Amino acid sequence: MRAVICKAYGPPETLTVEEVAAGPPGSGEVQIEVEACGVNFPDTLIIEGKYQIRPEPPFAPGGEIAGRIAAVGEGVEGLPVGLPVIAMTGYGGFAESVTVAAERVMPRPESMDGIVAAGFSMTYGTTIHALVQRAALQPGETLLVLGAGGGVGLAAVELGKRLGARVIAAAGSPEKLAAARAAGADETLDYRTEPLKERVKDLTGGRGVDVVYDPVGGTLFEQAVRATARNGRVLVVGFASGDIPRLPMNLPLLKECAIVGVFWGAFRAHEPEVNTANFQRLFDWHAAGQLAPRIERVLPLAEAPEALQALAERRVIGKIVLTTQAEG
């Protein structure tokens, strides 16, 4: 099978596409014939040894895939050969076949094609957990989404609206803000040209927002905390800016707001039944046409370096998905 291989930690251009052997699944594992692979920010970190997961090279990056069960190991039930699935692999997904622990695999609706499914799990799974379990977002509350043009940002805009919130989308270009408006944002602001705190205060009549969804980090984080209302919740989702912020702790004291961590991987491991219920809700919304994942580009497996570089440089609106289908 073909796979994108990281032979040594380094930038995307050092990756190669090679033929490697695909071993059979062991006990408690399944082998998946991969249709497509989502490209996510952690993939840009794992190839440089900067992520919390540090596989020893050589390895294939890729933490999110869609495909069909090709073989089942001993002790696995409920995942028959041929079943369409999604899987969170951690790494190894940029390949034509992957073997993964059965608990990391979830059946997907037959109506959801592989391209959409490959870009669905991480963005929507993270976001529904953040907004429902961690923030307890309520109808009528105001949600501020930072990085609203990226994959998780657009998912937060969509899900915020589905949950009944008023959504303010913040991003760094007119094109990204247009995408956020198309996803349902009520208001938008460009934080490269507008002061975030002051603009948010204007949009909320001086009150501030109830929930902040922040996958960006950096200097925006403190500004967003300053723009929260009393009893606000600030969701720490990630650090796409590359800068892990520090916060003067008198701010949450004076504002009586909560800084809330979001670690979807730990949630999946500790509360799998709740995660499954989240996904049933997401699948139902998608089947009803109430979620519209934005896949900006579909590229062949061999163009993984280009995809990762575009993501690292924040040149992507929505998601990039790699396909394993024959390259024409």
Rank of each mutant, 00 (worst) to 15 (best):
V4L: 01
V4K: 02
V4P: 00
K7W: 14
E13Q: 14
E19L: 04
V20H: 07
A21F: 04
P24V: 03
E35G: 04
E35M: 03
G38E: 09
G38T: 07
P42H: 09
P42C: 03
P42F: 08
D43H: 07
T44Q: 02
I46S: 08
I47M: 06
I47E: 06
G49K: 10
G49T: 09
G49D: 09
I53L: 15
E56A: 14
F59H: 07
I65K: 01
A66H: 12
G67L: 07
G67P: 06
G73H: 12
G75M: 04
G82E: 08
A87K: 05
A95W: 09
V100L: 10
E103W: 03
R104A: 14
S111K: 14
S111F: 09
M112Q: 05
G114E: 02
V116L: 04
G125S: 11
T127F: 05
A130C: 11
A130L: 10
L131M: 00
G151H: 10
A156T: 08
G164I: 04
I168A: 02
I168T: 07
A171Q: 11
R181N: 03
R181G: 13
A182C: 03
A183I: 12
E187L: 13
E187A: 09
T188I: 15
L196W: 06
T204D: 08
G208S: 12
G208P: 12
V209M: 12
D210R: 05
D210N: 15
V211C: 11
Y213V: 02
F221N: 01
V225T: 07
T228G: 04
G232E: 11
G232C: 11
F239A: 08
M249T: 06
E256L: 07
A258G: 00
V262W: 09
F263M: 04
F263C: 01
H270F: 13
E271K: 13
N275R: 08
N275Q: 14
T276I: 06
Q280K: 10
Q280H: 14
R281L: 13
D284S: 15
D284M: 03
D284N: 10
D284Y: 01
R294V: 00
P300M: 10
L308N: 13
V321S: 03
T323G: 07
Q325R: 15
Q325V: 08
A326H: 13
